[in-house]
Design a protein around this nucleic acid. Structure first.
Length: 568
DNA sequence: TCTAAGTGCGCG
DNA sequence: AAAGCGCGCACTTAGA
């Protein structure tokens, strides 16, 4: 059965308007409802059959639906799709889309969820009228249809929209988080919490630093003052970063590095963080789909994507539930092999460890070298060990290396590049172009030329990485979207075992709980753990096929089942 | 007292 | 001080 397309927005009277579109995207039927009827109507249509909900912004509309107990299977996020199509190099005839500047809203975090049905003040500033949504949707459909790669663009926009739903759901359901485990870790690392002052271990370590500096009043938290103290103590570093400190042999080095580590934990993820971000056993990060230019997600508040690995012990399943954690081994080089149709690299990647495969093919001598060289290829290293190893990688994998080298050249020349599905890098800005053209004039100074050259190289490294990072993000979106629908097919548990009872409807069965670029955590009733693991693997395979068809590249997972999400 | 920029470090 | 990409956050200082 083909899916129905229903556009959601506000009517002139300020009520919710639902407009059915027929096959050629013309409006065929409109219904207006008051806010209190909206969720019920959506639920009814979902029960009736396959619907794609087209709305301005999932982060605005969807939290209210979830709160009312309604989950939708498919959506189309006009704001996110607009941003993709506006920049897409595959779109030449945009059917007025690029002129529709009211849809150019900045990526925003959702207002924090308590407003039931509040579409009134759109958090992202995009239009909220149903008519505006219909017009924009028609422009988007036409732009995709007339693009040079409609299939890929459609897939990208659908995946992006699925991601917009998942981001809202992840926030609503939260990461199961044991405050007790977190506190135990804080106590053991930082020592007992002390009213007023710093925790005991931090104070003790600070005292050791000051003793080693021979300066009982040394300021450790002000970079310029600490730097001067270090100089006075005879440690002639240029910065106070751990990397540079570690290269020196001086009694202050060890305690200072220890101090920085403890302070980091204390200030970034200490008791204050726990108090602010964890409640009722859940950490609820705000995800921002496409918050990164490459299409990766960003987060806002709580530092969701920067939780230190050591804190993962606090991620604990509810009683009767467990966690399925999976991450993709070497996602980016695998994606690169597939994009470049580099069968040699794909072969080296087949099985478990891509870096071991590179060593086996004789390109470099050790796994460490393989990793360093491959990261250097994707990031654009020119110097050091990584830069030295690159030519060997180019000889062994000319197609894959050719793809990233070409992306870098395009960027240096001021051009744009795009991901496998067609997300396109931003155009070079005016100041960048000015700098380049000034440097190419006859009267250009040496300084101008050097600066222009450097900024061209910078841009080249950005576009080089864009194609790989962005395509990896697309793979991950496809993985997430496919997994979400597989999980939705698993049975619910009794309400008494729901996790937690006050959580959103989908929390009564296995559900995604965390996502970090190439890693997912699923919270599941214990009896469904194996089924979840199968679904996770199946969706990874399916994402690979969806993007790369029959090209022989696999995406092996590191998958673990256990009540904590700790890696190990 | 506010904001912007610099520094450093957590994640991929 | 990262070399070599992309982020967010905490803390400080400089400047208005």
């Amino acid at each position: 059965m083909p899916s129905d397309t229903v556009v959601v927005g506000r009517s002139a009277a300020g009520r919710y308007a639902l407009i059915d579109l027929d096959a050629d995207a013309s409006p065929s039927r409109a219904i207006e409802v008051d806010d209190d009827r909206f969720a019920a109507l959506v639920m009814a249509r979902e029960a009736e059959g396959d619907v794609r909900w087209v709305w301005a912004d999932s982060s605005v509309v969807y939290p209210g639906l979830l709160k009312a107990g309604v989950r939708v299977a498919r959506a189309w996020d006009l704001r996110l799709v607009h941003a993709i199509l506006r920049d897409a190099s595959a779109v030449s005839d945009d059917h007025g889309l690029r002129d529709a500047v009211s849809w150019d809203a900045a990526t925003t975090a959702p207002a924090d969820g308590d407003t039931l049905f509040d579409l009134g003040e759109s958090a992202s500033g995009v239009p909220e009228s149903a008519d505006a949504a219909v017009s924009e949707y028609r422009r988007q459909v036409a732009a995709i249809a007339s693009s040079t790669n409609p299939g890929a663009l459609w897939l990208l926009c659908a995946a992006e929209s699925a991601g917009s739903l998942i981001a809202v759901e992840l926030h609503a359901v939260g990461v199961p988080w044991s405050a007790a485990a977190h506190e135990r870790l804080l106590e053991s690392e930082l020592g007992p919490r002390r009213g007023g002052g710093l925790p005991a271990n931090i104070e003790r370590t600070a005292a050791a630093v000051r003793a080693a500096l021979g300066d009982p009043a040394a300021s450790l938290d002000s970079q310029p003052r600490l730097l001067r103290s270090l100089h006075r103590a005879g440690l002639l570093v240029q910065s106070t970063s751990r990397w540079e400190l570690a290269e020196h042999d001086h009694p202050v080095v060890a305690p200072l590095i220890a101090y920085k580590k403890l302070m980091r934990l204390y200030t970034a993820n200490g008791w204050a963080w726990l108090n602010e971000w964890v409640s009722e056993g859940r950490f609820r990060p705000v995800y921002v789909p496409a918050g990164v230019v490459t299409g990766r997600w960003a987060s806002s508040g709580g530092g969701a994507l920067q939780i230190p690995r050591t804190l993962r012990t606090a991620v604990r399943a509810d009683p009767g539930w467990t966690l399925v954690t999976a991450d993709v081994a070497q996602l980016e080089p695998r994606v690169l092999a597939a994009m470049a149709r580099d069968t040699v690299l794909a072969e080296a990647a087949s099985g478990r460890d891509l870096y071991a495969g590179i060593v086996e093919r004789g390109a470099v001598a050790s796994r460490g070298e393989a990793k360093l060289a491959m990261l250097g290829a994707m990031y654009g290293a020119t110097t050091g060990e990584s830069g030295r190893l690159l030519p060997r990688l180019r000889r062994t994998f000319p197609r894959a290396m050719g793809l990233v080298d070409e992306a870098a050249r395009t960027g240096e020349d001021g051009g744009v590049v795009h991901t496998w599905l067609g997300r396109t890098s931003p155009a070079a800005g005016d100041s960048w172009r000015d700098l380049q053209s000034r440097a190419s004039e006859a009267a250009a100074s040496g300084i101008d030329e050097t600066r222009a050259r450097r900024s061209a190289r910078d841009r080249g490294r950005f576009t080089r990485n864009f194609v790989v990072q962005g395509t990896a993000a697309e793979w991950a979106l496809a993985w997430l979207a496919d997994l979400r629908s597989r999980l939705a097919g698993l049975d619910e548990v009794d309400a008494a075992r729901a996790a937690p009872a006050s959580g959103p409807v989908f929390a009564r069965s296995a559900h995604l709980a965390f996502f970090l670029h190439d890693e997912i955590v699923v919270h599941t009733p214990i009896e469904h753990a194996e089924a979840v693991a199968d679904a996770v693997r199946a969706s990874a395979a399916s994402a690979g096929r969806l993007l790369f068809g029959t090209f022989p590249i696999d995406f092996p997972l590191d998958l673990r089942i256990g009540e904590t999400a700790e890696k190990g």
